[in-house]
């Protein structure tokens, strides 16, 4: 089977029962993606496929051949962190760090959803083309990513700080 992971083409010979999560962790050594429940309930295994977030524990690897898979390792590195990774450190958006890669991957895709105008259960005006970055809008959209240490406040602050800043820069560039 051939996979495209973090812009690299990778061949792997795995059981058809293997989840995308186990492929990453047990077969490819990409252990940044975490297993918290293996049931799609905690979000620790969130990765991006063609820019959309999925729970990789509920995905069979065999179905994700030739798709663009992005994991935390592809988002940024210790020497070259993604702005959201840096903001998680600055705003203390984690304690034990186990749910963190999933939170970060989830947030990256979530921002894309907001920008594309996809409504959430809390979006009041479905006709709006530009949905606001309110705290509750982000909380609702991030509620599939559990954090048992309770770093939720820091996570929301990190997301808001990163994307409020980016949005401001984009507006400036457009002007």
């Amino acid at each position: 089977m051939r996979f495209i992971i973090n812009e690299h083409s990778i061949e792997a010979d795995v059981d058809v029962r293997t989840s995308l999560l186990d492929l990453l962790r047990d077969h490819l050594g990409l252990t940044g993606t975490k297993k918290g429940c293996n049931q799609g309930a905690c979000g620790a295994c969130t990765v991006l496929v063609d820019g959309e977030r999925i729970n990789s524990c509920l995905a069979l690897a065999v179905q994700y051949q030739d798709r663009e898979i992005l994991t935390i390792e592809g988002l940024g590195t210790i020497g070259d962190l993604h702005p959201l990774q840096a903001a998680f450190i600055e705003y203390d958006g984690f304690q034990c760090g186990y749910c963190t890669p999933g939170q970060i991957c989830s947030a990256v895709a979530m921002i894309g959803e907001i920008r594309r105008g996809l409504p959430s259960a809390l979006t009041e005006d479905l006709a709006l083309e530009q949905i606001g970055f309110s705290e509750d809008e982000i909380r609702e959209r991030m509620s599939g990513n559990l954090c048992r240490c309770g770093a939720y406040n820091g996570i929301i602050e990190a997301i808001r700080a990163t994307y409020a800043e980016e949005s401001a820069q984009e507006r400036e560039a457009a002007a």
Partner: peptide, 14 residues
């Protein structure tokens, strides 16, 4: 922090 946000902190199953 950098290890944890980059997915490089190695836990027991890893």
């Amino acid at each position: 922090g950098p290890l944890k946000v980059a997915g490089k902190a190695r836990f027991a199953a890893e």
